[in-house]
Design a protein around this nucleic acid. Structure first.
Lengths: 104, 104
DNA sequence: AAACCATGTTAGATAACCTTACAAAATTAT
DNA sequence: ATAATTTTGTAAGGTTATCTAACATGGTTT
């Protein structure tokens, strides 16, 4: 996993990076738009990816889009991504079958 | 600046990532091996680069090398790096002068 | 032997974060 | 139009995380 996805950033830093209030950040978690991990003591830990998502959310909120709608958009986007991923792997599999290095 | 160099990680997380004690991390700062930033309230903020450096330090300490010596090695390494950088830029400059795109 | 290095530990203080609850304005649904 | 929901702020009280300073100690260097 790359640095971008490591959950190492506390909420105060995320506030600084995004310009959102802690209240907003916690609320967007409640609405299942982001999924921070927790420290042993219960503090939230975010990744740079989370920060990017939050900045995206901030824009959509500014445009008057509700969290409910944002969530739908995100799920659709994720579905597209994972289908692209599946296609990519299938093509790779075909290529390997035809031209790949044999191990025997 | 890339994510790797952003100072966003608190000392507790650095402890987890490196396996060093907070005492050790603070001490290595005192010995000028790392240079965390500070939050408004005075908490240290580290980057992934800092974490990498600390893991390097941990290895050298295990080998019985003293902080004093580690610092010398690091300074030498940095000097080499910046000289490489200068050479690289000079060569690029020459290339641009001979073959570069003219703007007039 | 004296000085220094590296680390643990303790104490007390402050910063940072947590949850819960209430409030209120704005929007959406009935 | 009224009711319900959304979004955010704020406050209270509690816990976790971090800070500095100081003392202790075993190992190493001078």
């Amino acid at each position: 996993m790359s640095y971008k996805d490591k959950k190492v950033i506390t909420i105060g830093i995320v506030r600084e990076l995004t310009g959102l209030s802690e209240r907003q950040i916690r609320y967007y978690e409640e609405r299942k738009l982001i999924f921070p991990e927790r420290s042993a003591g219960g503090s939230r830990k975010f990744s740079f990816s989370d920060v990017e998502v939050l900045m995206d959310i901030a824009n959509k909120i500014e445009d008057g889009i509700q969290t409910h709608e944002i969530r739908k958009q995100m799920l659709k986007e994720q579905k597209k991504q994972s289908q692209d991923e599946i296609r990519r792997k299938m093509i790779q599999g075909q290529l390997n079958a035809q031209f790949g290095i044999r191990k025997n």
